[in-house]
Write a protein that binds this DNA or RNA. Structure first.
Lengths: 224, 224
DNA sequence: AATCGAATTTAGTGTAGCCTAATTAAGAAA
DNA sequence: TTTCTTAATTAGGCTACACTAAATTCGATT
C-alpha cells in the first residue's frame, strides 16, 4: 500500500482526516464539497478506499467514513509534508503566509522522504506551521489542541492567538494586517450580535473586527 | 494551451526536446524506451500532441516528430524547472549531485512560477546546473554548447570537463570520485581500444577510467 | 525489382476517476 | 405512523492514457 498511492487518494484521506478531527466523521457531501467533485464520485472512491488491503477507511453506508490506522498514517504524512512545506516556503524562500497554501497543496504529494527530512532539519524541526497548526513529528505524532474559537470569548476576556485555520489569501492578509497572528495578545472589548462585529484591543490598540463569513470562527485562541 | 497541461504531456515534450537536440528528430521507439511505455502508446500520444491548438509537435508518420515553437516553449520551461531545482537541492538543501535527478524529475511538474522565481533569485540566477547543463533563462533562451565527448579526444590532448550527461546515481558517484566534475582539468594519457580503457591525468594524478556503457561518451569536454 | 526485418501504426481493451440522471435511505416534521 | 426533504447510492457513460496483438510501411539487401 505504501507505494503507488495516487495524489487523488492522498487528497481524499487528507480531507477525511480534517473532517473527522472536528466532527468525529466525514460525510459524503462534505468530502465532495471540499474536493470539488460530485457526491456520486465520492461514494465510488470511498468504496475503493474501504476495499484496499489493508483498508484505508471504515465506511458505513449512509453514515460516513473514518480513517483506519493505515489511512490515518498516510493522512498524517501528507499533513506533515504540507505544514513543513509551508514553513519552508516562508522561512527559506520568503513567501508571505497567505501565499503558501496552494503551493504546499501541490508539492505535498511529490516530495520524497529525503526532501522532507532535509527541510525539517534545515528548519530545526518546527512544531508549528506559519498559521500555528501543529506539525506531526517524524513518527507522525501530532499534538492535540485545546484552543477555542475567538468568537466564543466574552467581552472582558483576554487571550493569545494560537492558530488561524483559513486558507483564503485575501482573508489571511486582512488577518495579518490586524495583527492577529499566532502569539498575538488581545482583549475582547465588545461584541454586537446584530452585525456580528467584534471590538478587540490588540497590543493595546483597539481594532474593529468584522466576522464576515465567520473569520473569527477560524481564529483559535487560548484564554488567559 | 498554457493551462491544463498534464505531467504526461510535459514528459513527452521534454523527452522529444532532448532527442531532437542530438538527432534533429525524435522517433517513436526512442520516446517509448525513454518514457517506459510501448511504442503504440507513443503513436497515440504524438497524434494528440499534433492535434492540439496550437499544435505542440510536428508529426510525420513513420518518420518522427519535432517540437513546434509552442511545444518547445513548454519543454524549455520544464527544463528550466528541472535544472534550477537540481541546483537548489544541491546548494540550499545539501543534496549530492547524484541524488537530485529523480527528485527534480518529479518536482519540475509541480512548482509554480513564483517558486521558480524565488529559487532562481536565491541562487543568483545560475547559468548551469550541478552537472554542468545550461539553464534556460527566464525568457527561455538556452545557450548552445559546442563541447565534445571525452571519448573523442586523442592521447596527448588536454581539456576541461564541461558537463556530465548522466542520471544514474551509481555512475555519477564514480565520476565524482574520479574528480571528473565540471571545471576539472585533465590530460588524456592513453587509450586502448581493446577494453575501451582510458588513462587520464586529472589534476596531475594519473587515473584509469573504464568506458563501461560509454560513461566517457556522457562526459562532455572542451579541448584546450 | 523483389524480399525481409525492424519500426511503426491500427484496432480493440482495460483501468482510474470523473460525470449526470434516476433511485433509495434516513431522519425530521406532521 | 406516514410524509417529506435532504443525503447518499446506483446505474450507465465519458475521457485520458496506458496495453496487446495484428497489420503495415520503410529502407536495406539481395
Amino acid at each position: 500500500m505504501r507505494e503507488n498511492l495516487t495524489q487523488t487518494i492522498e487528497d481524499y484521506l487528507k480531507t477525511i482526516y480534517q473532517f473527522t478531527l472536528e466532527h468525529q466523521r466525514a460525510t459524503t457531501n462534505q468530502i465532495a464539497e471540499s474536493l470539488g467533485v460530485t457526491p456520486a464520485s465520492v461514494t465510488g472512491m470511498l468504496k475503493k478506499l474501504a476495499a484496499t488491503e489493508p483498508p484505508l477507511v471504515e465506511y458505513k453506508k449512509h453514515y460516513g467514513v473514518l480513517l483506519t490506522p493505515a489511512g490515518e498514517k498516510i493522512a498524517l504524512e501528507i499533513v506533515r509534508h504540507h505544514r513543513l512545506l509551508e514553513m519552508f516556503l516562508v522561512q527559506m524562500l520568503g513567501y508571505e503566509w497567505d501565499e503558501v497554501h496552494s503551493e504546499a497543496d501541490r508539492l505535498e504529494h511529490h516530495i520524497s522522504e529525503a526532501f522532507e527530512e532535509r527541510i525539517a532539519e534545515a528548519l530545526g524541526d518546527p512544531q508549528r506551521d506559519p498559521h500555528g497548526n501543529p506539525i506531526p513529528t517524524r513518527e507522525l505524532a501530532i499534538q492535540k489542541l485545546n484552543d477555542i474559537p475567538l468568537r466564543s470569548l466574552q467581552p472582558g476576556q483576554k487571550g493569545v492567538v494560537q492558530r488561524v485555520r483559513e486558507t483564503d489569501p485575501e482573508l489571511l492578509r486582512r488577518v495579518a494586517e490586524l495583527g492577529l497572528v499566532p502569539g498575538a495578545h488581545f482583549e475582547v472589548l465588545e461584541y454586537s450580535p446584530l452585525d456580528e462585529n467584534l471590538l478587540l484591543a490588540i497590543a493595546g490598540q483597539p481594532v474593529s473586527v468584522v466576522l464576515g463569513k465567520g473569520i473569527t470562527n477560524q481564529i483559535f485562541v487560548k484564554a488567559i
